[in-house]
Design a protein around this nucleic acid. Sequence first.
RNA 1: GGAGAGGUUCCCGAGCGGCCAAAGGGAACAGACUGUAAAUCUGUCGUCAGACGACUUCGGAGGUUCGAAUCCUCCCCUCUCCA
Length: 399
Amino acid sequence: MRFENELKVIKKGVEEIIPVDELLKKLEKSAKTGVPLRIKYGIDPTGYDVHIGHLVPIRKMREFQDMGHIGVIIIGDFTAQIGDPTGRDDSRPPLTKEQILENSAKYMEQLFTVLDPARTEIRYQTEWFGSMGMTDVIKLMGKFTLAQFLAHDTFRNRYEQGLALGMHEIMYPILQGYDSVAIHSDVELGATEQKFNILAGRDMQRYFGQEQQVAVLSPILMGTDGVNKMSKSMNNYIAVFDPPAEKFGKVMSIPDKLIVNYYNYATTLHPDEIQKIKEELESGVNPMLSKKRLGWEIVKLYHGAEAADEARSAFEKQFSQKEIPDEMPEFNSPEQSLKLIRILTESGLCETNGEAKRLIMQGAVSVDGTKFTAIDAEIELVDGAVIKCGKRKYLRIRK
RNA sequence: GGAGAGGUUCCCGAGCGGCCAAAGGGAACAGACUGUAAAUCUGUCGUCAGACGACUUCGGAGGUUCGAAUCCUCCCCUCUCCA
């Protein structure tokens, strides 16, 4: 049957589908009636930096779109004020309308590197929450019990660890759940940590007499540190806005253990191909090679094959062959010569004089290939001279 | 409302009158090594100063003291138990 095939595609790279048989029924019904399914994914417009971990469920949405269904992106302008308790940010300052609009515009720009705009609907929570009164809110809250929330990992852990847990935070799943009612969601996508929130949507829909949505949960992508999940706050992420060389470098910095994981969730390679890479790794092929390919695949996804080639060869030049990169920041000064320390700080290569001194003493700084270790070194400012500071920072002198 | 515990440098977490710019760990950065911005080892890690040292920091505001992250007062915030 046709939907069996579709189901196979949907299942690929997905951790859990709750419940599978309902999804099958929905697919069947949609095929029969010609009415596309509504696939929901919510974002909080607290920022706009999208990283490749966010895009794991978004790719799934694209697959649904390619089957003819509708992707509905919810801009969580209300939930943004709460902050997803699943994260650990304590308080969020309320966002202005302008910020929300700006953030969501930039957010969508990045999502559209993956999504099909023709089959994407963008909805704001304000549409349905903006006019709600206290009575409605109380009614919604009454649909859930405290026990339910305390059964939720995040809430329980924070409670048991004695961390602060604001009353408003329990509103998060309630609001997210009601979103599903408001947009008549058929499927909600999210990472596995979203399970509770997404299931809350199912409950809400039942209370409102709607057909319940199906949860399609993607695995959580680990951050480049290999320890925490990829997130902005841990600064272990590869952003969609990162330039190609940056993406490539960040991929090279992931621990070797993560290679297969990234192939699975951050690329669109065929599972058989990934299996092959896995076997190669196990048989002792240098992980660096698989990583280079991984970096290439990821850059290609966002910037095309040409950019991927460039990123790879730039990396090889700079780190394997230790050549000087073509592009680097430049520094201008009217002086004939300057203290090395001052060049480093004034150009912004180093934050403080102390840092500059440290780096010099540690032998991290060289000018045109000559290492300088004297703190008070004075440098002739010659046009085109290249200062190297550490592994990745370069500066070209301009006259 | 009552009784306790606590707020420390980017994060976690010690310190509880001078030896504290503050242990330890993590992160970060650097060096060595490596066909990886992996792993490992070593070092650095408040600001200024070449160094001696000076200055700013331990929730906030005052106070005691020759001297406070450490003691006192008030305030703000968090947690636990009782109701």
